[in-house]
Each structure stands twice: as structure tokens, then as C-alpha cells.
């Protein structure tokens, strides 16, 4: 089947999935309660008439299916509506936070992937060596570590105790710029990035290394590796060209999933480090029940995951010619 035809078919197949997920999310949320009641809870002087006015303004008095269809109409036209707080359009909020989240996530995902490859390969080749034991123990620590707690420990050590790195935010005011005595906006950004990125890298790395190690152990036992060794091909080439190519597929799936979920940020990590990204915005939106913003972020992530899945499948076919696109 032609590549273009395959991609088009997959995209058409995504449409019912996206609509299904939007229906479930929308109905669950709107059946939950009255966002206006929650938004105005802290305001004792507000009257019921004013509340009613707000509900009318946001169209919350219509039956839920009508509200959904209206939402869907806007969604198809690329509009997520207005946030219930601050009166800004959801598109604008998402747009302004998009870069900070992507910066943190891409940096961490790519670095975790790059570190995982030599660690996983080496650990599998030298199975039961000291290195292997340390790599496997560090990775089981990594998957067991509550990310937010790890973040807290890093803040305590590097920000509060040593005073080396900032504990919150993505940027500092120019007066706070000096990083190790050098005033520079780029260094300042980098300094803010280090702690949250370390948390994300450590958490992601553990899964990558475990998957790759298991895959390599499986592949290295196969006949074609022995054949390659017998024909005198250098060990380095065998490992990184012949074996890795087959062992890396599960890692690619994981990478695809991570990039898909990337835009959701890591709500917990962003919360701990007060990172001005989508993950933290999502947490505040949920606690205030800012429905349009929640729906907007949820839908963006869903679409990103589906596209990332498609790209992952294409990457599979590219790596492994045996995989047929159908």
C-alpha cells in the first residue's frame, strides 16, 4: 500500500477516536457541577442574578448535548473558546505556555534517550558485571522514585542548601541573572532548566534502560549475532548496528508515546518547580474547574498522542522492512 494512502487512512480512522474521547471528557466534566458556583464561591457579595448572567454569558444554561455540539463546532474551526478565568481565549493561553513546556520536555526526552542507549547496551553486554548491577539498581530506583519527591530533594540540596540553582520558574528577573558570576539571559534559562530536567531525565531514563537492556539480552542470544561474530565483524559494529537495530523498537514506541504526551507536560514536575507550562496550568484549571481550558489541553494532547502513534508506526516500517503498513 502506498505511504500516502496509508497515512490518509490512518488519519480518517483517528476522527471517530478523537470525537469519542471529546464526548466522554465533555460529558464527564459538565455533569460534574456548576463552574460558576465554584468560581464565585469566594465572593460573598455576588447575587444569584449575577451568577445567572455569567451562566448565560458562557452558555452554561443550555442542555449538555447542545453545549457539546457548540463546542464541537468551535473545535472544528480551531477555537477552544474562552477561559472562565481572566477572560483570555484558551488558544492564547495554550500558545503562551506551549514553548516553555516543549523546551523542558524535549530537552529531557532527548537527553534521556541518548544516555539510555550506551547504558542499556553496556549493561546487557556485561551482564552481571558491577556496571550492570549499578545500572539496573539505579534504574529500579528511578522507576520507584516519586518524581515530586525527587524534585523536592533536589530543591533542598541545590537551591536551599548549596544555593547554586534556582528552585522555581523558567526565567529570573535580570537582577537575578548572575549565574556563577556571569550575567547572561541564556545561562539564566539553562540554570532554571537543570533541576526540573534532571527529575524528568531520571524518571524517563529508568524505563528506557530497562527496556533496552531486556531487548539487547534477547537479541544477543540469536543466531545471526553469532554468525556476525563468526565472520569477524567488529564487536562495536555488531552491537550498535546489528543488535541495537532490533532491540531498539520498544524504545521507539516509548519515545513516540512520550513525545505524544509531551504537551501535557509533567503536571507534577511543573507543579513542584513552579514551571510556567501547560502541565501546571492544567492542574490549576482542574482545581478551579475551568472547563474550556481543561478540554482544550486534553484535546491537544489526544491529537498529539495519535499523531505520535502514527509516526511511531511509520518509523517501525522504516527500521524493520519486515513490518508492513496495512
Amino acid at each position: 500500500m502506498g505511504l500516502a494512502k496509508y497515512v490518509v487512512r490512518r488519519i480518517i480512522y483517528m476522527i471517530p477516536l478523537v470525537i469519542g474521547i471529546s464526548i466522554v471528557s465533555f460529558f464527564v466534566m459538565y455533569a460534574a457541577g456548576d463552574p460558576i458556583q465554584i468560581a464565585t464561591m469566594g465572593n460573598p457579595s455576588i447575587t444569584e442574578a449575577q451568577r445567572q448572567f455569567l451562566r448565560n454569558y458562557y452558555g452554561l444554561n443550555d442542555p449538555i448535548p447542545v453545549q457539546y455540539l457548540r463546542w464541537l463546532d468551535h473545535f472544528i474551526h480551531g477555537d477552544f473558546g474562552m477561559s472562565l478565568y481572566g477572560g483570555k481565549p484558551v488558544n492564547q493561553i495554550i500558545g503562551s505556555l506551549f514553548w516553555e513546556t516543549s523546551k523542558l520536555q524535549l530537552f529531557s526526552i532527548i537527553l534521556a534517550f541518548i544516555i539510555a542507549i550506551p547504558a542499556g547496551v553496556y549493561s546487557a553486554v556485561k551482564q552481571r558485571s558491577v556496571t550492570d548491577y549499578s545500572v539496573t539498581s539505579v534504574s529500579i530506583f528511578g522507576i520507584s522514585m516519586p518524581v515530586f519527591w525527587f524534585g523536592i530533594v533536589l530543591i533542598l540540596i541545590f537551591s536551599y542548601h548549596l544555593g547554586l540553582l534556582p528552585s522555581a520558574g523558567a526565567h529570573g528577573a535580570p537582577s537575578l541573572w548572575p549565574v556563577f558570576g556571569i550575567r547572561d539571559p541564556f545561562l539564566d534559562e539553562l540554570a532554571h532548566l537543570i533541576l526540573p530536567a534532571t527529575v524528568l531525565i531520571f524518571a524517563g531514563l529508568a524505563w528506557h534502560v530497562r527496556l533496552l537492556r531486556a531487548g539487547m539480552l534477547e537479541v544477543l542470544r540469536q543466531d545471526y549475532i553469532m554468525a556476525a561474530r563468526a565472520s569477524g565483524i567488529s564487536e562495536r559494529k555488531i552491537l550498535y548496528k546489528y543488535a541495537l537495530k532490533n532491540a531498539i523498537t520498544p524504545l521507539i514506541t516509548l519515545l513516540g508515546l512520550e513525545i505524544g504526551l509531551m504537551i501535557g507536560g509533567a503536571p507534577v514536575t511543573e507543579f513542584v518547580f513552579s514551571w510556567p507550562g501547560l502541565g501546571r496550568a492544567y492542574v490549576t484549571a482542574v482545581s478551579k474547574l475551568d472547563f474550556p481550558l481543561i478540554m482544550g489541553i486534553t484535546m491537544i494532547i489526544t491529537i498529539m498522542v495519535l499523531i505520535a502513534n502514527l509516526i511511531t508506526d511509520l518509523a517501525y516500517a522504516w527500521i524493520d522492512p519486515k513490518v508492513r503498513l496495512e
Partner: peptide, 23 residues
């Protein structure tokens, strides 16, 4: 199963939890 795998579950868990927290 696929729908459940595609769902951004970490985020939806929060929405559900919040809704029931209020209810």
C-alpha cells in the same frame, strides 16, 4: 482498550478526582 491507552489518563484522573472531591 485502545481508547483507554490513548486517553491522557494522568490528566483525566485529576479531573475525575476533583469532581468527586466536590461531590
Amino acid at each position: 482498550t485502545e481508547v483507554f491507552l490513548v486517553f491522557p489518563s494522568t490528566l483525566l484522573i485529576l479531573v475525575f478526582a476533583r469532581i468527586y472531591q466536590l461531590k
